[in-house]
Design a protein around this nucleic acid. Structure first.
Lengths: 212, 212
DNA sequence: GGATAACATGACGATGTCGTCAAGTTCATA
DNA sequence: TATGAACTTGACGACATCGTCATGTTATCC
């Protein structure tokens, strides 16, 4: 049957409209979050809402298409941090990097929270998780990162910083760095006091915070 | 002329319906947040939506009526912590207490975030803020709480924990205590590394996090 | 340059929420 | 117990968003 399951390529106008929609969605997601009205995205892109639904049948499809490159950026950050000269500095740089992604785009954290289910996204997340494991191991073996933490504890950082960005981003756009500095001091081995609860199990963390 | 500006007392049935509405709203706010549909609150209370709007013309009125007693609880926690034997323990107890309030009631943090504008609420917030100032001073003078933090930095704790509760409360209801422990370790003087940004100005913090 | 599949359009019905109001009912007072 | 004010009711119009679909248009291929 000569059927390679490749989807046939889009027609020229359809491809152009797809790009216009992605641009519009990217901008609106960044400033107002991923729950903006679909009709508004279409209007901003200069196409009808019918076209929007033709290209992206569900909001989730649109979200995943928009944020795939942010996931790639995330992986890139992790790869750099994994080979940093100073293990602790690598850890700090990575964490700071993903927080910067969030500070720059209100929709990013919402998208990751919702979960990215496309195969491409899953793959990137797996890669980032693996690299993050190395980053953690190195920093813990160096004795700077406290030994009783897990990569799943980074969910606290991501969640907390995104909330601070939501609350203060408009008015004091750099304040989240203060929040992060306080949090990071709590991750130092020198600061360690016993933790009262076990960390999130790996599966739960993945479900809840995806990869970043 | 002979006009004490006291509002006349409600009629018996109206008073009863008011209580039914408050009970219904309290329960729904706690489990689903303060944005539940007004009609659903009325239905749960067993009255018509018209009655709901008669008693509480705006959602904000209802929210403030529901959460006033939580603010009182907050003040109570602060008064206790202010006279604790160990200043650091007092600080920890207070912070843990307000986090417990949030963990028990999804609506509480939303309500405070939105701001409580009634005179009674404002007064309670002012009292709590004053007590919190003392708690901070004592713990800093004792040398356990790092000196470069401000009461406004507690906003980070409140915001972060509420987010963690939102994300994990259903599945791992005690996990937020781990998050809090990590945060508190970052507030210890022994852990202090320089902070990159100045704290929120007092006015902004009040606006943003109210009193807790 | 014509035929056809791919695509775009925007009006539409469905759904959910809000706050109001005219009409009916109940409480409180004398 | 009768009267008027206080209160309750639930239907209603306004609004916003969603996803669909019949119709009209455009690109692509022979």
């Amino acid at each position: 049957m000569a059927s390679p399951d490749l989807p046939r390529p889009l027609r020229g106008d359809a491809r152009r409209n797809r790009e216009l929609l992605l641009d519009a969605a990217r901008a609106l997601f960044a400033e107002r979050g991923v729950d903006v009205a679909m009709a508004e995205i279409a209007r901003r892109a200069g196409v009808s809402n019918g076209t929007l639904y033709n290209r992206f049948p569900t909001r989730q499809d649109l979200i995943e298409a928009v944020f795939l490159d942010r996931l790639e950026k995330n992986v890139e950050l992790a790869e750099q941090a994994r080979v940093a000269d100073d293990p602790w500095q690598g850890f700090v740089d990575y964490v700071t990097g993903i927080c910067e992604l969030q500070a720059a785009d209100r929709g990013y954290n919402e998208a990751v929270t919702r979960g990215m289910t496309s195969p491409a996204a899953q793959q990137l997340q797996a890669t980032a998780t693996a690299a993050l494991g190395d980053i953690f191991d190195r920093a813990q073996r160096a004795g700077t990162l406290r030994a009783d933490t897990t990569i799943d504890d980074l969910a606290f950082v991501v969640w907390g910083i995104s909330r601070t960005v939501d609350m203060t981003g408009d008015h004091t756009p750099r304040l989240w760095r203060r929040h992060l500095a306080l949090l990071l001091d709590g991750f130092r081995a020198a600061a360690a006091h016993p933790l009262p609860e076990p960390p999130l199990a790996a599966g739960q963390a993945h479900q809840a915070m995806a990869t970043d």
